[in-house]
Amino acid sequence: MTYLKFGIAVLLFGAAPFFLASFHISLLTEILILAIFALSLNILVGYTGLVSLGHAAFFGAGAYAAGLIGQHVSAEIITTLLGGVLVSFMLALVVGIFCMKVNGFYFLMLTLAFSQMIYSFIYQSTTWTGGSNGLTGIPTPSLLGLELSNIVWVFYVTAILFLLLYAGISIFVKSPFGRVLVGIKENETRLKSMGYNTKIYRYVAFVISGTLGGLSGVLFTYFNGFIAPTNVYWTMSGTVLIMVLIGGAGTMIGPVLGAALIVILETVIATYTDMWMLLLGVIFIFFVIFLPEGIYGVWQRSTRKWLKGKIPQPELKKVDREKVS
């Protein structure tokens, strides 16, 4: 079943450029990039229970690193991708050491502080990053010498990475390690008394989350060809947090839905009005008050209600079968 769904997704993404206009491909690419970004934050927020308000720092680190490597070293995707991911990985290693010392509100504030440090560094360090003007003149990415000048190529690169990451994260969160993270979200005290050094787990989750956030930043430079300091600003951290929460934190498909909804809405709304933040705020508040479990949570709840009595719940089935035998 899982393989089938995955296969269908591969086919759909593979075929998309053949029946979608390039505008829509571009939109889809943006959604996938931000979906990766949201998925990476979800590891922290949804699965480990650590609400970060500084995730844009990693997005920005990956994006700027990829841009600068593209300018000064090589525009080869393999180089920029590895370089960008490595930079965000190292950043997460360092920032994580500090952030793991605190919990809850203090974690939120500390991640915010670090991301603002990165932001002010990028904003004020004009010689390297272009400061408030942003980083311009990033060369078109190339793969094995072939220039990826067409959006379709960028789309394919993004789609492949998205599918790999989606599958990978799905396995990760269901692995014994991933279950420990969920346990920490639920009740860290208990996990400690079970014999888990929870700080290390939180640290690893933080580093994975930051590294993948950086990866989405790298993809964003391919897609956008330009990086502005606003991509590192805390409103960016806020937006990705909104995507995760609106979609459904702690689920796999939720953040993807959230990213899709936000990107599509922003694109549609932009043609009518520039009051985008107002609308986003209204939608977000609506979800916070009325649908705190997010889009996917609502969908799950309603289908479960609808299916009740028709299909036995899969989880229960397993143990019951054993009991009979």
């Binding site: 939120l108 806020g238 929460l245 009051m275 985008w276 933040m277 107002l278 986003l280 705020g281 209204v282 977000f284 508040i285 916070v288 008050i289 705190p292």
Partner: peptide, 15 residues
């Protein structure tokens, strides 16, 4: 939820 609510409000008041 309260933190998130006020975050949403900040967006609204901004526009």
């Amino acid at each position: 939820s309260q933190v998130l609510l006020t975050f949403g409000l900040a967006y609204i008041l901004h526009d």
